[in-house]
Design a protein around this nucleic acid. Structure first.
Lengths: 215, 215
DNA sequence: GTCTATATTTCGATAGAC
DNA sequence: GTCTATCGAAATATAGAC
């Protein structure tokens, strides 16, 4: 009897664990390669090498290159949605938008690859996740616009267009991930330090919160 | 004698005109295809079809796919540099930054493809134009930081970090080009109208100029 | 300077032994 | 579940007639 079969009987969840582990390894490698090369520039061979697996194994876990790509895009989108919780239930813009900027900036630092894959997908016309834009993202946006409008009506901030304020927040926070290479080059080739990131967060919050008349 | 040779002798500049015309046609087509498909996703065949020329002609005017791509990236970079003129010689941030936002927003509307190609190039680590980042862009940035710092010292605006202010301006203005598809989707699938663009400009300028304490 | 035909390479995907 | 070998399609680039 093969050793694998023995272990499989001793630990019934082993087979599922292997699947989950390998899928995680492949997804992480894919996120990096898709971000660095784009969908067209990425090759299954590159992803396989990055994951340390034979190319055929990728096709065993993900039927096609597009399936794998779709999973990568979904990941970053869910991370952003989760981070938006701090936006709601906030008493006013200082707390709500301040916390949202902090969360988005942390994500840009932690998941720069995912942010780039999303940006690339949208830039190319969202061929894979157009339905997300039209349903989940649209609903989320309308909900946050309502919150901002309420703050305006309550006199907690100046009457700026909530939609363009959201665009400014998305653009600025994601810029630190998507254009991270440019920022690093302008920082003498060095990655931003903890202090740099803290300054970036503070600068963005200062300009935005004062810009909307909240402080 | 072939008709071409006749014309060539009657109008000595004809041959150069044909070259310039064809190069322009190919560059325009390439900009669009590179923006929509990325470098890896773009094919010489797609660009040739878009330009209405046989694929072999592209290789006659541009030796390789990468040569053609490099020219496209250089184009948008020069357009942005030209637009920065309004930044200098301005008496203060209201005029200088206000004009810069207007100019960058106009470019985002007029050259959305070029902006996307640039974004894609930087996101992938600037493999082709890294030297531009380290020379021209770095010099340009340092110069504008000095201008902003002078405005701060003269009490014309609040003491915000000039570097992060520039990043916010770049991110926000280019967002309307790079994420134009997302913005259009959130605008009920309709492109932004003249009125929409005017509102976007006004919103950005209002938030930024008030955010830096200039108004 | 133009264009058809093709050489050469590379990629996504699969077959089939283990 | 793993991995080697390979197929068929598609891409870049070029050769050579016109």
């Amino acid at each position: 009897m093969a050793p694998d079969a023995q272990i499989s009987r001793l630990r019934p969840g082993r087979r599922t664990d292997i699947r989950r582990e390998n899928e995680r390894t492949i997804l992480d490698a894919a996120e990096k390669v898709f971000a660095e090369a784009g969908f067209g520039g990425a090759t299954m061979q590159l992803i396989a090498d990055m994951a340390g697996l034979p190319k055929a194994n990728l096709h065993y876990y993900f039927a096609t290159k597009e399936d794998l790509y779709r999973k990568v895009v979904q990941q970053i989108f869910e991370i952003w949605l989760d981070a938006a919780a701090c936006f709601d239930n906030a008493p006013g813009p200082v707390e709500g938008i301040g916390a949202y900027v902090d969360a988005k900036m942390d994500i840009s630092r932690t998941y720069p690859h995912g942010s780039k894959v999303w940006a690339s997908e949208v830039m190319h016309g969202a061929p894979v996740i157009q339905d997300y834009l039209e349903t989940t993202l649209r609903d989320w946006t309308e909900g946050r616009i309502a919150v901002i409008q309420r703050w305006i009506d309550e006199g907690k901030m100046a009457p700026v267009d909530p939609r363009h304020l959201l665009y400014l927040l998305w653009a600025t926070t994601q810029h630190y991930a998507d254009f991270g290479h440019q920022i690093q080059t302008l920082n003498n080739g060095q990655p931003l330090s903890d202090r740099h990131w803290a300054e970036a967060k503070a600068s963005v919050k200062m300009i935005v919160l004062r810009g909307i008349g909240a402080i």
